[in-house]
Amino acid sequence: MPYAYREHIADMGIEASAGTLAGAFEAGVEAMLNLMFDLSTIEESLSFPVAATGRDIELLFVEVLNETLSIQGLRGLALKRIKVDSIKTDDDRVALSGIVYGEKFDRQKHVVKTEVKGATYSGLFYNSGEGGTHVLRCVLDV
């Protein structure tokens, strides 16, 4: 997945890029989950729908990240990835729907890394630049 971690002294900046906006969202979510777990230790035996809205794409990015964290925390999961089904824009909102995949968190099985507390509005950035590459950035509170 095309993502990278950007230097932040206290927290963690993530940057995702892809040829489609959906792909950039998928990469961004994986960048966050990869901070929390060794993703190779997680199987995709469970799936849950995700829906989020934002006033713009940057705010939607934070919403999707936080929604993923909430679902994971509420259901006691180790999540591996998100598959974005649709991103729709109406007058003043952008809405995303998708499915997250993973399994029940198992301390014996899953290799844990760092806890992510939440996605913030710091370093928040979206750009669809030349060549149609969509770039999303955000700072996570870890």
Partner: peptide, 16 residues
């Protein structure tokens, strides 16, 4: 713990 994280998440949106 998670309660604080979720309160932060919820109110970030509300205060925005």
């Amino acid at each position: 713990r998670a309660l604080g994280h979720q309160i932060g998440t919820d109110y970030l949106k509300i205060l925005e």
